[in-house]
Design a protein around this nucleic acid. Sequence first.
DNA 1: TATGAATGAGTGTTCATTCAT
DNA 2: CATGAATGAACACTCATTCAT
Lengths: 195, 195, 195, 195
Amino acid sequence: MKQNKPKYKQIIDAAVIVIAENGYHQAQVSKIAKQAGVADGTIYLYFKNKEDILVSLFQEKMGLFIEKIEGETSGRTKAADKLYVLIEKHFSLLSDDHHLAIVTQLELRQSNKDLRLRINEVLKGYLNVLDSIIQTGIDTGEFREDLNLRLARQMIFGTIDEIVTTWVMNEEKYDLVALAGQVHHMIVRGFGNSQ
Amino acid sequence: MKQNKPKYKQIIDAAVIVIAENGYHQAQVSKIAKQAGVADGTIYLYFKNKEDILVSLFQEKMGLFIEKIEGETSGRTKAADKLYVLIEKHFSLLSDDHHLAIVTQLELRQSNKDLRLRINEVLKGYLNVLDSIIQTGIDTGEFREDLNLRLARQMIFGTIDEIVTTWVMNEEKYDLVALAGQVHHMIVRGFGNSQ
Amino acid sequence: MKQNKPKYKQIIDAAVIVIAENGYHQAQVSKIAKQAGVADGTIYLYFKNKEDILVSLFQEKMGLFIEKIEGETSGRTKAADKLYVLIEKHFSLLSDDHHLAIVTQLELRQSNKDLRLRINEVLKGYLNVLDSIIQTGIDTGEFREDLNLRLARQMIFGTIDEIVTTWVMNEEKYDLVALAGQVHHMIVRGFGNSQ
Amino acid sequence: MKQNKPKYKQIIDAAVIVIAENGYHQAQVSKIAKQAGVADGTIYLYFKNKEDILVSLFQEKMGLFIEKIEGETSGRTKAADKLYVLIEKHFSLLSDDHHLAIVTQLELRQSNKDLRLRINEVLKGYLNVLDSIIQTGIDTGEFREDLNLRLARQMIFGTIDEIVTTWVMNEEKYDLVALAGQVHHMIVRGFGNSQ
DNA sequence: TATGAATGAGTGTTCATTCAT
DNA sequence: CATGAATGAACACTCATTCAT
């Protein structure tokens, strides 16, 4: 199991750093190898090709990401609470990892269509968590029963993603986590006045 | 004024087709020139370099896009109505232009940071329209007065963008415009039950 | 006779200025046309191609150059005097025309072999003047009778040319004409002590 | 130390051959690589860019050239003898290397100003040898004490260079080395009759 | 004569991947 | 397992020249 060997993680961590600091198109395999402290050729003992590094990177990091979020949300009963925890956790995990935020929000988007499709595969785990929360809400009557599951999921993901991306592009100048409450309220209650 | 010369538009239209059909990284200048029916060198009589073609493409198309949307929304009084028209128009304009949808949602995102920053400049016009609608809603009391303008704007844009992108990635298999009502409702009223 | 039409000289003068100020490789036809105040295509009504501009330039300017030098030297009887006048005139003519000095000493040397062969044709006129002076010197007994005419000519030309080129490369910081006497003495009398 | 790796010299030697046989402007990197028997990319493991090949070529070849000439001249005591050896050696080294003669006398002169400045840096070593010989001659009384060191150096270099260039342009039809004595005599004794 | 928009051939350089050691 | 020297395909851009007006 290559994934357990130390150099596997070493190379992935190196890739995150190199991509975050140099940008996607300036993240040459040789630069990643140097950062990881291995020879260029060694990379190919652990990864099929460059794309495989990036997909693996996303899988490893996003896997942990989803795991943590799932863990936190499962402790709540109400869908709205689960959703709040998800947003808060999503924001805080990226706030805590500057390099990862740049890589997932900006740099990895420059990859070609093939790579993006494979990244989307990984994202499905996250979207499943969202679906499950929304379905819970509909089932318990918290959310409207005519809510379109797919659209709702896309709204949540699109909103969170756009807010994080804007925050990263603004060089993370403000407190992202502090926005979780307002974002959560907009999603659950909408723009309208409640009276 | 180069923008009025026929070859200027001819080249931009060719670029949209070539990028949509071949992908961003396979859209060589020579391919665009061939599609436009001009010599490679002619491109450089109208554009400073390759990046300039792409920025101009985005400016021209997005300019028209924003113009049309602004025109339609200005005919409405209520913010909620304006927002509905915006969503519906956004969906229908992209539904009607298959190539443009692929280019704006998938291919142009692969551009480097510099180009993306310049694209964001163009997008500001669109975001301003959103801001103005939201502010109208707050002023008239349609929307909550404690609504965070920036977050609201990011939610609308992120939601619409994610929904369109998913639709494009799913090869436009379903009717995007038909979703406008539900999307609008989710944004304005949220997920919650109204009782 | 195209050579007599005003635009012919106009274009040649423009070429000297453009080459002197931009360098040989940055002296595009369009730049010369602009400097001459004519359209690009007009150049080709007066010159066969770009190389023809440069050869004509050299012919015109070097023709005048040789004419003036010949005129001055013919006024002297002794070969040594003729040689002195030639050196002095060569130095002063280039000292007086900054642009021409740069073009002939530095820029035109970057031309390809073909062009240089044609330039050498023009130079033959100058070399003939040299030969005639040397022959005179030999005939009158001023110069050694076993002097190798060809080598002597190459020594004079090589010396003068190297001195002028160095002076141009040093941005013409010192008085070139003032060196004529020493140069003349070195050529006629050599390095050795006369005793 | 790249200079000691076999491919470094292999590429430089290939460059001399390709430039001599095809001319400066037809000496594409791919042609040099082919001649050297390496891949195009390999060139860039040993040289920063194309200009670096040419500068290195000049440094390597001219470095050896100067070394050899310095070695030979240092064996003589009298300045005139040193000068004779220098001329003779200069002529014979280029006579023995047909390709190098073409490259240094004709092709490399077509390089742009930047490259020529860097070539001049290399030439300084040669000019220093000349200066030292001339100074020796002045100190020992062999040469006139009012001899202008800089002009004398330019005369020697200009003369030798012009004679070699003419010889190369005449396709090396005559015996260059055989001219050394006459050239030496012209420089040391001048044109004049000694009586 | 004069114009200037259009042409299209030509090349230095990068970098993911391989493979002999 | 690990190395790193070697590979070679791929592409944006310039500019001398033409020719319809």
